[in-house]
Simulated assay, not measured.
Amino acid sequence: MSADQIIDHDSWNYSPAKLPRQSKIELGRIHGILPFDGVRNPGFRSSTSHRVWMTYRTAANDFKRKVGIAESAAEAAVAHEFLLSPNLHDLHFQPLSVHYRDEQSKRRTYTHDILATFVDGRRALIFVRNSDSLQKPRTWREIEAITAATPRGAADSMMIVDAGRFSRQRRENLFRLHEAIQFLDPEVDDMVLWTARNHRSLWLMRDLFPLLDLPQKVVFKSCYRLIARGALSANLDHVIAEWSRVEVAS
C-alpha cells in the first residue's frame, strides 16, 4: 500500500475511526403493519450502538403487528421480556420527551425508552442503562432530574433496568421466545405440557421427543412457547436447544 493510500487514523490509532453521523433510517408504510409512533426516531446508523427494528403485537392494538425501534440490544431485550408477560396490555417505544437541566445548568432533552401499560391499568416508564453507568452517583442525579421533569400523569412509576443483567445469550433467547409465541398451537402445547408433568425423569428437552407422537420440530417449537409462557423453565443465559435442562414450572 502506497503512502497516499494510508488513512492517517490507521497509522497511529487502532481504535475504530469516529465516522460522521449518518442520516436516520426512515421506514415507509408497511402493508398490514402499524407504523412506529414514538416521539423520536432512534434509528440512525451507528458503528458503536446496536439499533433494533422489530414488530410486535399487544392487546391494545387487537394484536395487530406494529413497528418498534429500540435504541440498543438491551432495550429490545427489555421490550421482549415485557411482551412475554400475560400482564402486559400495551407497549410504546420512545413514548415521551422531557426537558431538564443537568448539573451545569445546561438544558437537556431526554426521551424515555419504553412505556409499558399493564392489564390492571398501571403504567410504567422504563429507563434502561448499562451497569457501569448505574454505579455512578452522577447517573442517579440525572435520573432524579429526569423524574422530576416528567409529568405526573405520564405514568404511575419509573422502572430503572440494568442492561447488564441481559447477557448476549439471554437477549437472543428472549428474541426467539417472542418469535415463538407469534404462531400459537394450544392443542399441541397442552399435549407437551401434560407429558412433561407426567414424565418423572424429565431432565432434558430431548427427553420429551420419544414420548409424543409428533414431529420433533413441532415439540421443539412447543417447548419454546411453553418457556415463553412460563409453563416450562429453562436457563435463559444458556442456549435453549434439545440438550437444554428444562422442568415444569412450579
Rank of each mutant, 00 (worst) to 15 (best):
D156H: 14
L204K: 15
P35A: 01
L84W: 02
A241L: 03
A59M: 07
E247Y: 09
N130Y: 05
E75F: 10
W53C: 05
R108V: 00
E103T: 05
F82S: 01
T139W: 14
Q5W: 09
A241V: 00
F82L: 15
R168Q: 13
A155W: 07
G28F: 04
S105Q: 13
S157F: 02
E179K: 13
D10N: 09
V52S: 00
R197S: 08
R200V: 06
P210Q: 10
D4L: 06
V67A: 09
R176E: 11
A228L: 05
L214P: 03
G28W: 06
D120Q: 08
F82W: 08
L236F: 06
V246G: 00
D8E: 07
S85G: 12
D113A: 10
E26F: 05
F183R: 15
H112V: 03
M1R: 12
P16C: 11
L88M: 06
R40S: 10
R138T: 10
D102K: 15
A60E: 14
R108W: 03
P20F: 09
L204R: 15
E142F: 03
L202I: 05
R129A: 14
E81V: 14
I160M: 09
G32E: 05
D37P: 00
I181F: 01
L208G: 04
S47Y: 04
H92V: 09
T139Q: 11
Q135L: 12
V188P: 08
V128R: 02
I160G: 03
G153I: 02
S157Q: 10
A74K: 05
R123D: 02
L193C: 00
G230Q: 06
F166E: 00
S131K: 15
D4S: 12
S131M: 05
Q216W: 05
V248N: 01
T147V: 12
F82G: 00
G43A: 14
T195E: 07
L19W: 08
S167T: 15
F166D: 01
E242C: 05
V239T: 08
D156M: 06
R101G: 05
D102Q: 11
D207T: 07
G230L: 03
R176P: 00
S2G: 15
